[in-house]
Amino acid sequence: MKKIEPARWMLGTHAWLVYLFIYAPIVVLVVFSFNQERINAVWTGFTLDWYVRLFQDAGMLRAIYNSLIVGLISTAIATVLGTMTAIGMSRYRFPLKRVFDSVLYLPIIIPEIVMGVSLLVFYVFIQFTLGTASIIIAHVTFNISFVAVVVRARLAGMDPWLEQAALDLGATPFQTFRYITLPLIKPGIIAGMLLAFTLSWDDFLIAFFTAGVGSTTLPMKVYSMIKFGVSPEINAISTITLLFTMILIFIALRVEGVTHATKTMD
């Protein structure tokens, strides 16, 4: 049989060029965060100066602190509400369920800019002072949807007979939830939680519209630095942010791995 070697070879080369395209900018960014030269993209020597400077910058530390506060609080609220929603949606029937279902997906799909401006207008309308609280509320709003979607997927993959079996064995509905349902959807909840935190941690646009004086988040700080011009400090803070996200992804993948292990049982 005649093989189409040239086509195969070309596909392979193409694929690795695409991966180069995807990873090269990130690698360059990280490498140049250790470069002594400030203005030109020319390698002049290794330094940790830019990192040191970051941690001497009170505004930067403040922004990191704000981002952590917003991320942690909004993730906690969104995880609880999103999980409850997912369970409620998978278990109950109620009028307007389809409408609620669509509304639940909308924050995921509508352009961020629209969500940002609508929240800004809303806060101004109800005369809510912009600050950390207004960002947290905004982040909870989109994260409820993301958590609900992730947990629902997990619930959908669960054997519906397990809960029945628990009831049959004498577990009360509460015990069934506590000892069967909750442990089984836990990987989904953790994955949703990590996703929510990542989204909050990375969000610039919505925070941009809903932040007030003194509530600048890390992405907002980075944005203002970028607007000011390229500088190695941005490379340094970018590297830290990348590292942080990578750790979160790693944890998420580990959780997913556990999920797969329990899924193979049926």
């Binding site: 397990l162 079996a165 009831l167 049959d168 509905p173 069967i180 049982m265």
Partner: peptide
């Protein structure tokens, strides 16, 4: 859960 009756389910429904 208060019946003195237990079931062996078709696909066993063992808690994974």
């Amino acid at each position: 859960y208060r019946r003195d009756i237990n079931t062996v389910f078709q696909n066993y429904a063992l808690f994974p």
